[in-house]
Write a protein that binds this DNA or RNA. Structure first.
Lengths: 293, 293
DNA sequence: CGAATAGTGTCTGTCAGACATTATTCC
DNA sequence: GGAATAATGTCTGACAGACACTATTCG
């Protein structure tokens, strides 16, 4: 209210962009997958000056003639070889058909996460980054290393991030001393945390868990995704009943697995993703007091 | 996979930002409020060259030493005189205490919406904008016009946007011929649509409906917010039972209104927002086939 | 008084969580 | 055969939607 004399058109057209120092725009991608019953993120080892040898999210500068979505898809392809179906900036999940298909038949979901523009976030210059979030099925170990020299899947739990629901209380002993545990470059820990939180939430009300598995999949595999991302065990019979009761979540593909489980059990029926974009009713996590307040 | 020779560090540090044309970063704010039982958005009339005389979202260039959140709060304050509590980029709703308070006791919720970077979105130059979403209580009519010359609250329904849940099917007769109906500048219609969709969704699982009313409020007022935003009538008794059963959504403040309703009826009890950040269980809309698929 | 609204009570169908049970397959 | 797992069935408590009803206040 102190500078009432400034009127609104100035903010839309009166300011010449040349009056301000250049702002660089980058795109970073949080690629999540589930391996060995744990949530993993794709990281690259930085070889250059700021934060050298630290792990970072894959990303790069926005090019002159590409949109943010295109830049994110390009970064994802460069690092993983996967083609992406982008959901754009809309709040909705993308329709099943828009998901890209890679050589291995992998479907990749890619959506915008958020933008980060703290003046201090890059020591070199002013950089605003738009982060994207991708859900990939478990890829062959080789995949990550083929295109990107220093890339690796790192368990999210090994990064010493604040626990799922206490990011306010940052005081938490970081026990692991592995190299992956070193703090991420820039503000990438914050970005990753936002991505993981978004992922957890989206499993509740969208069918995106199916983006973490390859089709056809069993209900046990799908349940494994929920258990890994939410980090809590689920009741197999109830999970089954719930999933099948949500219209359009999954649809039976007819057959069964070739063999039963590794330690016995009958062959599981196979499913593929249905045509629902939203789950009704949603797969609700049990209310945790810390998460609610 | 065609340019396998490019390795990952190039994308993080190998590209000199000077190699690319400058990108301007702006911030736009979708300020929503409920007036006369209808959802309204704050728009400004453009006085300058591209899209002159069109309505646009309030916004402006990011300044050298401010974060995106700060820029959005500044724009919001310039246009409405309201101080904002920013939820930042996190997925969570902000705690009740962080909401700003304006002279009139108004609480304003401000959160990041999404970023838009299509190369063609501004005819003048390359502009990437980060959109924010604000929920304001109903403000005195004078408020909008005081600081911003050409600002006005415009009913969202008067803008000829695609209907809530058929943005794919764009063919829809636009009947209103009022000046407000002219298409918004730039891609602001798309941004507004995303904001409205986000708003609708957030009423389901967060207590943000309380950001649209001034404390203390009655349950009828709160119900009016849901009805205006969702554009569907709700059963008063069931709404009441549901709201009161969600822990931390609202808490009784003790008294009642001075008078009954304008057309009769007893005095309503008064409430204020509780300390919940998420609603458990959520206030679910009835499943609409179009929204789900 | 008549109309409108706040608030309470109740019924019913659906669903979540927990548990028991059967069938199938691996070792 | 023993163990593990897929799939089905059942019970119970909680909740959503619908409706009836009472109480209060305005005009």
């Amino acid at each position: 209210m102190t500078d009432d004399e400034r009127t609104e058109p100035e903010f839309l057209a009166g300011y010449s962009p040349g009056d301000y120092p250049a702002v660089a725009v980058t795109v970073d991608v949080v690629v999540l997958t589930v391996r060995d019953a744990a949530l993993h993120v794709l990281l690259v080892r930085r070889g250059e000056h700021p934060y050298r040898d630290r792990w970072a999210l894959p990303g790069g500068f926005l090019r002159p003639d590409e949109s943010l979505d295109e830049a994110a898809a390009r970064e994802l392809a460069d690092e993983t070889g996967l083609t992406a179906g982008t959901a754009g900036t809309a709040a909705k999940a993308d329709p099943p058909g828009s998901a890209g298909t890679a050589p291995g038949g992998a479907r990749v979901h890619l959506e915008q996460l958020a933008s980060y523009g703290d003046p201090e976030r890059d020591p070199r210059m002013r950089v605003v980054t738009t982060a994207y979030l991708a859900f990939a099925p478990d890829l062959p170990e080789a995949r990550a290393g083929s295109d990107a020299a220093g890339a690796a899947w790192v368990p999210v739990s090994a990064l010493g991030l604040p626990a799922p629901d206490d990011d306010a209380a940052g005081a938490r002993p970081v026990r692991q001393a592995r190299s992956a545990t070193r703090r991420l470059a820039f503000d990438h820990a914050r970005i990753l945390l936002d991505g993981v939180e978004r992922c957890r939430a989206k499993l509740e009300y969208t069918p995106l868990a199916t983006s973490f598995v390859t089709e056809p999949f069993t209900l046990a595999e799908l349940r494994g995704v929920y258990e890994a991302v939410w980090d809590e065990p689920l009741h197999p019979p109830n999970f089954r009943r719930k999933v099948l009761s949500v219209p359009g979540f999954v649809e039976s593909v007819g057959g069964t697995t070739e063999r039963g489980g590794p330690r016995g059990g009958p062959r599981a029926a196979l499913y593929r993703a249905g045509d629902a974009r939203l789950l009704h009713p949603p797969m609700l996590r049990t209310a945790t007091e810390e998460r609610i307040r």
